[in-house]
Amino acid sequence: MAVATIRTKPFETLPTTVRKPLPAGRPREWYETHNRRLKAMRLAIALLDRGVYEAASASNRRIRSEASRIGIHPPSDTTCRMVRALIRYSR
């Protein structure tokens, strides 16, 4: 019986960089916070590149639409607050 194989293109949303594995032995909350900060940073940079320089103009809806535009999962409310804080401190 023949088996079909499917080839897909690699998922490319951000420039690929050499990533080091995260250190083992930390509590789960540390990894969750670390990944949340990375996601917030990516979103803040993308919004700043699109001309959103005021935290007040970065609504949850706008942040989530930017996330879908750059190909990452929609952020939580906590991550959206982090994005606004990063935009606020980028001035």
Rank of each mutant, 00 (worst) to 15 (best):
A46N: 01
W30Y: 15
P27G: 02
A67C: 05
S59M: 01
R26M: 15
P15D: 10
T13D: 09
L43F: 04
R81F: 03
V83Y: 01
A24N: 04
R36I: 00
W30M: 06
Y53I: 05
R26C: 09
A56F: 00
R91N: 06
T17V: 15
P75R: 02
T78G: 13
P21H: 11
L14I: 07
S68Y: 01
I70Y: 06
S59C: 00
T5D: 06
T8S: 08
H73P: 01
L38E: 13
K9Q: 13
T13N: 15
D77S: 14
A56N: 02
G25L: 06
V52W: 06
H34P: 01
L48Q: 12
S90G: 07
G71R: 04
I72S: 02
R36G: 11
N60Y: 00
R50P: 00
A44V: 02
L22I: 02
D49H: 06
E12M: 09
P15V: 07
S90L: 04
P23H: 08
I6Y: 08
S57N: 05
H73I: 11
L43Q: 05
I6V: 14
T79Q: 02
S76P: 05
A55G: 11
R81Y: 04
P10Y: 05
T78K: 13
M1R: 09
G51N: 06
K9M: 11
S65E: 15
V83S: 09
V52F: 14
S68N: 03
Y53N: 09
R69P: 00
I72N: 03
Y53A: 08
F11Q: 12
A4L: 14
I45F: 03
A2E: 11
W30A: 13
P74R: 15
R62E: 09
P10C: 03
R37K: 12
P27E: 14
P27C: 07
P15A: 09
W30I: 05
A58Y: 00
A4T: 12
A4I: 12
A46R: 10
A58E: 01
R91L: 08
C80Y: 02
H73R: 15
N60A: 08
Y53M: 06
G51C: 06
P74L: 10
G51T: 04
K20P: 00
R19D: 10
L14K: 11
P10S: 10
A44H: 01
R88M: 06
R64G: 00
M82D: 15
A55F: 02
H34S: 09
V18A: 11
P75I: 06
G71W: 04
E54A: 11
T13G: 15
A67Q: 03
T5Q: 10
R84F: 06
D49L: 07
S59V: 01
Y53H: 11
L38C: 12
L47Y: 01
P75K: 04
I6D: 04
Y31Q: 05
T33D: 15
C80R: 02
N35W: 05
S59H: 01
A46S: 12
I70E: 04
